[in-house]
Design a protein around this nucleic acid. Structure first.
Lengths: 114, 114
DNA sequence: TTAATATATGAACAAATGCTCATATGAGGA
DNA sequence: TCCTCATATGAGCATTTGTTCATATATTAA
């Protein structure tokens, strides 16, 4: 029980756990990666690139989304270094840039399939 | 090139990748789990419970959030079977219910620390 | 240079999200 | 019983998010 509070708080346990928490910045970064994968249409794009690299309009065809929508999502994924791209003439091919993300996705896939 | 379209689409690659995509339902479920971990304050709650079980007001103290806010988040996490609880009198203790989530978090922690 | 095409970008808007405040529930003690 | 405390819940709101539409950029071909 805290002297300065009416609340029922187990100070020992609280202090113990506070010590184990990662720094705020790490938590923010972790959340950012999870957020990138938290939208079904964006996740679908990443899943598509898991198989092989694709150009923007192929991704749009695969995911039944507009080119513009896909482009917006790819920018976000690029910012987070989840995907990278290479240009061949007019066409820009996207692929996965981050192996950890592949592991994260495989693990969650395994999870939803029990 | 598609006969019915002006767009430059590599049909073979598109069809190949479409075959590898998980069913829509699986994608939705995966996205739901990632979404649960995509908010920093909610992620912090899960990180706190990773260490040991805690009652609601201890979680609030650890995470510098209001009891009410924590309670709302815990309900969401409960719905997704990420956390579970047990009652001891007036106090309700929450803990992690899903080992896969622990793996997901450890992997993303490892990721942000290169 | 001009036209055509692949991709990117900005603005706008509807929908979803997280937080706060007020109130409700449910358990223990007086 | 009544009061207190731990937790839960609903409504309201400001903010964020995903999508669409129009337009811009960049590359190739004519």
């Amino acid at each position: 029980m805290d002297i300065c509070s009416i609340k029922c708080i187990n100070e020992t346990k609280v202090r113990e756990t506070v010590k184990t928490l990662p720094p705020k910045e790490d938590i923010t970064q972790m959340a950012d990666i999870f957020k990138a994968l938290s939208d079904p249409s964006r996740l679908k794009i990443v899943l598509a690139l898991l198989n092989q690299e694709h150009c923007v309009c192929d991704i749009a065809a695969i995911c039944s989304q507009t080119d513009s929508g896909v482009s917006h999502q790819l920018r976000l994924l690029r910012t987070l270094k989840i995907v990278k791209n290479r240009r061949v003439g007019k066409i820009i091919y996207y692929s996965i840039d981050d192996d950890h993300v592949i592991s994260l996705i495989n693990m969650s896939l395994h999870h939803v399939r029990h």
